[in-house]
């Protein structure tokens, strides 16, 4: 049901896009106005979400660690998994952001039949890590590759990336490795959610919708490149027009382009209000981005109220005479 709901939502969006693609009068809306709106919503919404998170209090020092804490000098500290320096934290965050370190440590729990009844066993589970890695890196490379439509002249780095991506030179136009990888990976990520019962149970429409969106964007892109071709030169003119704020709408681009750009626009606009915000959120996860110096430094809650203290010295000053009379020993005469 949750799957069906997301699926129908994406189908509906594709129908809207198809309508926009085949009604020439709507091309200006679908090719120029909606992309601008989506971009503004993406950047604006992203900043709004991050600022909102930034304003929420971070009371405690709560780094999670999987390595030896800094201790006595002859005990070797794990400087990356239990960092006590800013550099350590940066390396740790980079490992997390670029290589999904914590997902790499994913384990699987199983009840197995043992000699004395069922036994609980744990094993390493790397498939999710591998699928995610392929998915995210492919997505990143695809986005960078698309800069060839938005930049003129095209930077050398973008061209290099593209030639590496198409290095197998299979078919014409050459197949991009990332196109294959992202389709395989997104299919895996989807199947995992409907096949593994525990994962299926906790999956929501908000989990399936982005998957279907990304899947349909990738498929429309592949169709546009290999089967229902569009006029690339016209596409680039439109893109450069958008980037220079002098929008132009060349004729005869081809309907597939409008379907693709509409779906991309919807994804970008939806991004800040969805789970996809983990792109910004990962940098703000307090269990990862904090230096593990819980005991080395005294951490004071930044918004603590001023507490009125009455020290023993002050107490004694106040009651010294009375204490002496009562025979209670005092520190200062």
């Amino acid at each position: 049901m949750k799957v069906l709901f997301s699926f129908l939502a994406v189908i509906l969006l594709i129908l809207v896009a198809t309508m926009g693609a085949f009604i020439t009068n709507l091309h200006y809306v679908f090719g120029i106005i909606i992309p601008y709106l989506a971009f503004a919503m993406f950047v604006g919404g992203f900043i709004y979400r991050v600022v909102k998170w930034g304003r929420s209090p971070v009371p405690f020092r709560i780094p999670t660690t999987i390595g030896q804490q800094k201790s006595l000098p002859w005990i070797k500290q794990n400087k990356i998994e239990n960092p006590t320096s800013a550099f350590g934290v940066i390396v740790r965050m980079a490992m997390e952001v670029l290589f999904f370190r914590s997902l790499f440590r994913n384990t699987k729990t199983e009840l197995r039949e043992g000699q004395n009844g069922p036994e609980l066993s744990y094993g390493s589970a790397k498939w999710l890590w591998l699928g995610s890695l392929f998915f995210h890196w492919s997505f990143l490379i695809i986005i960078i590759r698309h800069l060839r439509f938005f930049l003129e002249p095209i930077p050398f780095a973008v061209q290099i990336l593209e030639s590496v991506d198409g290095m197998l030179q299979i078919g014409l136009p050459a197949i991009y490795l990332t196109d294959v990888f992202i389709l395989v990976a997104v299919t895996y990520l989807f199947l995992r959610r409907i096949i593994v019962p525990q994962v299926k149970y906790i999956s929501l429409p908000a989990d399936f919708f982005p998957l279907f969106m990304i899947m349909s964007i990738a498929i429309s892109g592949v169709l546009m490149r290999y089967f229902y071709k569009v006029d690339l030169v016209a596409v680039k003119q439109l893109a450069i027009g958008l980037a220079t704020f002098q929008p132009v709408l060349p004729t005869g681009i081809g309907p597939m382009f409008f379907i693709h750009i509409f779906l991309v626009s919807i994804l970008f606009a939806y991004f800040p209000m969805s789970k996809l915000m983990h792109m910004g959120g990962i940098f703000m996860s307090p269990t990862r981005n904090m230096i593990s110096n819980n005991r080395m430094v005294r951490h004071i809650n930044p918004w603590n109220h001023e507490v009125e203290v009455h020290t023993y010295e002050q107490y004694e000053d106040e009651y010294r005479e009375k204490m002496k009379k009562a025979g209670i020993p005092v520190e200062k005469e």
Partner: peptide, 27 residues
């Protein structure tokens, strides 16, 4: 956080700055 947000915005607005003042002349 603000420094990171500025970097984020800069990355996503590269096309606007890169093409600034250029004429959109196709081949």
């Amino acid at each position: 956080i603000f420094a990171s947000l500025i970097i984020f915005a800069a990355l996503f607005t590269i096309p606007f700055f890169y093409n600034m003042g250029k004429v959109n002349a196709g081949p």
